[in-house]
Design a protein around this nucleic acid. Structure first.
Lengths: 244, 244, 244, 244
DNA sequence: CATGAATGAGCCTTCATTCAT
DNA sequence: CATGAATGAAGGCTCATTCAT
């Protein structure tokens, strides 16, 4: 059964074949982003694609394979549409961080893509499918590495790899927040868009926030005097404390 | 449907009736956190609760109502188990920020709750149900306000409300990242736990990162000289730039 | 998933529950015997049973389990309706062989059972399902043993177990022929029933044939002189021979 | 449908056209024997034949016609590969019976044909298709007649046609048992092959068994003294008897 | 009151067949 | 001629929900 004949690996473009295939990929992207893998029905996808109920099975074998294909394509599309600007020798690390953040935000919030990539990724976080492994390997890990390089340039050789990872996650966390938490943002600040419209604002804020943080953390000797922190060390015992 | 008569508001405690109701809430919490609302089946929940297939409909009217009840309860539970430590007059804003971050992380990652609250919230972000409105009103908005107060104390009266919001989102984004992106973290850094085990590390990192950022942003006059940033302001035109 | 709740192992009789269950078993027996496992549709079975499409799944878990249940029940039914008559101390082995053959024929051809058991068994021979293992263990092996005992009494202690097996298969082969090859018999000898109607004729023929064979084979010393067989031993080399 | 115009009667041999047709017949034989008509899928057959999905419909009109063609061809093939050895004037009826039994067993069990013919016939018994009529007329009836001739020579002119038929069925029943009941044999006597490997053993056993039976039945006057059978004739009343 | 058998809509998938190219 | 994309009916199964008991 695993070897059932399905022309799923076809790559030759052109022809009526690919028209339906394309329509299915497009319809699938819409539907999967809208309602997620499980709520999506092949019937709906096929209807939107103007194809027969069996079209998904014919072209992709099954719903899950179509999903994986859509996810990968949306990822490639997001990357292609919003690539990291090439950095020259005179591009400062700060600028490269800003570039990274802007590109990342664009990919997950971009109106051109109807934010499909971002929404599909968000769902994947909550209900990972087999497609995630591939995505991590092909897309996320390289991005993570790229960010690490930028951050290393910013902090110098001192901080450990582990510290670098934490810094990176703080940056990425800020970005993804606007993607993952839209439903709350809409309810919390109605009327205020936190999406592609305000992409520039968000980019600049996250960049400035992160740069300030990284610089502040890289210069601990300067800091202690500025703010009268509690004499107690900032590493309190793990147990919960209660103060009057 | 929500207004149908069902004895959900019964007050007589004890007895088999309430025992079943309790069991359903507990089983529901487990199942909903594990597989999400849509994957969860009433049969499964009832079986785990040792109750009849119709028990959910009998006690809660329908699956969605049970879900809302479970979500609200888990939220209350998380709050009760990991409350914000009371701040005294001598508690520094920095300490209060750390407290906020630690409590937040505990609520969403806590092993005691099997991270149920966090996982349910994460799912709610991706596939909001009617229960979210109530949750925002009763739990999220107050938390947001509390964070704003802390941040205002940190930055002084200068920055706008809008800026405060952005700062808050940067803080919260960092926190939620560890909750929302577990599937990627596991694949990206296998063997490295980013959960309750490392709660303290994460708390201190996010706190330090955020404090450094906030302070850096609050003292722009000191910064300019330190790093030779591009003469161009950090607000480049929205269009994409290409450099050699 | 393997532990899904299904009351399939219910045994308490009586009540409306069992009415539907019974109807499904009956309808299933009809349909499975008529068209076989794969051609049978649960829709058809449920319709005939006056039940809902989901009834099979509710009561038996799935189509295959219903089938196994039906097969086992038909087997038990055939056995119960046509048991081997108890043999007394003065019952000759020849009589016991006749009893065995008659009972066997009745079970597979009996009109009372609409020959359901026989037809289901015949299909099982051609397309064995998991249910066959159980059937062999619980029903066929004991029958095989019983026949061996009878034959041993007929041939005495001389012949090997292996020989006994071959004798048994010759007896059973004759019986099953009328069950397995009905479609050919109908076409070959139209108008001549080889079914329950002629059960007695068939019983007596097979009995006489088999007894004569067993006796003839048990007295080889007497035989050689009677018929002028070829001087060549009756065990020719395995290769094919060609004669003018 | 069988009368639709399809170029099946093409006579130009060679060429890709006939090659595909041949490949389909071969692949079809494999698949039909393996899984039966209904489980076989046109896709599978075409794939194995290295042909297009539509090839079956193109070359044979539909699946059923291909099946009939395959069945007929396998039958012819079995006959051609294992013909009845020509009997000379000095060939004894006993030898001719042995020849008949051996050839029959070879046809249905032969490893050269992967027992395809036998398995297809067995399936045909359980789920007759339109192809069976043709098979009975062209192959089975002649074989049946040939057997009758042999048996008539053995029993002399006395016994009726009806008796002859019963004798024939006893012979054929023994043979087919090893073909039809393989699944049970495997489970009942694991490790003991009842297939082509033991063709000679089976041939000799069935021949000896049948000859002894036929002879015994043809000489009733000699028998009575030998075995102290019950005084009651072997034709008991049809009703079931119970003995102490 | 609580049960659990029954419901029926709906989902994914399979498959023989057709038809434009 | 031969292809293979497209068709659409149908099948097994799941599931939240209902309702007689």
């Amino acid at each position: 059964m695993p070897d059932k004949f399905h022309p799923q690996t076809r790559s030759a473009p052109g022809g009526a074949h690919d028209a339906t295939r394309r329509a299915l990929l497009d319809a699938g992207a819409d539907v999967f982003a809208e309602v997620g893998f499980h709520h999506a029905t092949v019937r709906d996808i096929c209807r939107r694609a103007g194809a027969n109920v069996a079209a998904v099975n014919y072209h992709f074998g099954d719903k899950e394979t179509l999903y994986a294909e859509v996810l990968a394509e949306q990822s490639r599309l997001a990357m292609a549409l919003h690539p990291l600007p090439a950095a020259g020798p005179d591009t400062t690390p700060a600028q490269r961080l800003e570039d990274f953040i802007r590109a990342f935000l664009q990919r997950v919030l971009s109106a051109e893509l109807s934010a499909r990539h971002g929404r599909m990724m968000a769902r994947e976080m909550v209900e990972p499918t087999r497609a995630l492994d591939r995505l991590v390997a092909e897309s996320i890990r390289p991005q993570s590495a790229a960010l690490s390089v930028i951050l290393r340039d910013l902090v110098g050789p001192g901080p450990s790899e582990e510290t670098l990872r934490l810094l990176g996650m703080s940056v990425v966390g800020q970005i993804l927040f606007y993607c993952h938490c839209q439903p709350v943002l809409i309810r919390l600040f109605p009327g205020m868009p936190f999406n592609a419209e305000r992409l520039d604002t968000l980019t600049l804020h996250i960049t400035a926030f992160s740069l300030a943080a990284v610089r502040g953390l890289s210069q601990p000797p300067v800091a202690p005097a500025r703010v009268p922190r509690r004499p107690k060390t900032p590493s309190p015992p793990a147990g919960r404390r209660r103060r009057s």
